[in-house]
Design a protein around this nucleic acid. Structure first.
Lengths: 206, 206
DNA sequence: TTTTCCTTACTTAACGATCAGTAAGTATAG
DNA sequence: CTATACTTACTGATCGTTAAGTAAGGAAAA
């Protein structure tokens, strides 16, 4: 046990899976960057999908724990929803690879997503569903279909985090007559997002 | 002079690029499914990226035209915003491959997106930016950063459209105690989304 | 009318590169 | 001596791409 080569492989693999997606991440490159050879990966992991699952469950179980512990207080649905969104944002900030990996899974319709990761994802979304349902039952939220709100929150944060270069590239083509304020970091986005989401789900004073 | 072979290749290619992304779509499979051989593709298109660009610009210029013509009326920003969102939804309905292709580009941070597609994308977003800016100037919208609203609209529609199987897979793991209403089609989602977005950007009567 | 020829629209066959995965050998620590 | 933690060397498959050949059809020449 000279060094923690396995941990190194896991970290490098996370970066490669996030940049290239599951199919296009090369074990050869991951090995080289980790300072080992390709079969060394096969010593530590059964195959490519096993390495991928290790990378994913690591982060997903952490996120599931984060959003669950932050929201199971006795606060109002509004406060819990705001906390959920901002916790999600903080997590993306501390785990930069995670958003891009999930973004690739969105694009692939979850083709490569292992069962364990689907379980963790279900937990994460169930926590959010519970908050939204509570709000509706307490008469403070007006939501016809929680799926839409879930998508508005999760997809906005994930896609924003993964499309930094693309957004800059596209924004540079937009006429300069439009004043475009600087883009805040992901936590700033999460704060702005939670503000708009709370307005979006509020019960209208008819 | 069977001109429909080229069109056939374009259609099949769109389906393959949407399912597998640019890098993982196989010219061999596209050719086989189109009823030709691989070099036949190289007769009609310079290379793989040229075929990709043809598929993309086809759809993007159409979408740019759709959202522009629908919104340049003299209506209120609220009506124009609602129309923009629902036009976007209709477009995704009639062009099922488009959302997934864009979703792959989001995940890849636009690595494979050709210049012409970036131009069209800029036009599409500029139309939305103009609507939001008008709303702010007319005092009916309260928006700190239009990027957030753009992401809420575009990412929600795109990701929702591409994650049908994944959402079903995850939803089946959520406790049955939660009543989950049936998921409407993309146009229904667009209608619900526009309702929430209009609430989210409204100027608060404080 | 018949023959020649050129362009169009492909096909067959192969290239080098890269991929995930494996068999078999080896150095090191306890 | 033995288990751990690798390495070297390789396999078969698939990838984008290209060189070279060919069938079909219309236009020009005989």
């Amino acid at each position: 046990m000279r060094e923690n080569k396995k941990g190194k492989i896991l970290n490098i693999a996370a970066r490669h899976f996030s940049r290239y997606g599951y199919a296009n991440a090369s074990l050869e490159e991951i090995a080289a960057e980790s300072g080992v050879t390709k079969p060394a990966i096969y010593y530590h992991f059964k195959d490519k999908s096993d390495l991928y699952e290790a990378v994913l469950t690591d982060r997903l179980s952490q996120l599931a724990w984060d959003v669950e512990t932050v929201s199971d207080t006795a606060d109002t649905p509004q406060v819990r929803l705001r906390r959920y969104i901002e916790t999600f944002g903080s997590f993306l900030e501390t785990h930069p690879c995670f958003a891009a990996i999930l973004s690739h899974e969105f694009a692939d319709n979850g083709t490569q997503l292992p069962e364990s990761a689907a379980d963790a994802l279900a937990n994460i979304l169930q926590t959010l569903t519970a908050i939204l349902n509570d709000g509706v039952e307490q008469g403070v939220f007006a939501i016809k279909n929680p799926i839409v709100i879930q998508m508005m929150i999760v997809s906005t944060l994930i896609v924003h985090q993964t499309t930094d270069k693309l957004r800059k590239r596209v924004a540079s083509r937009i006429e300069k007559s439009f004043h475009l304020p600087p883009v805040p970091n992901i936590q700033g986005i999460a704060r702005l997002l939670s503000h708009h989401i709370l307005l979006a789900v509020q019960k209208e004073p008819t």
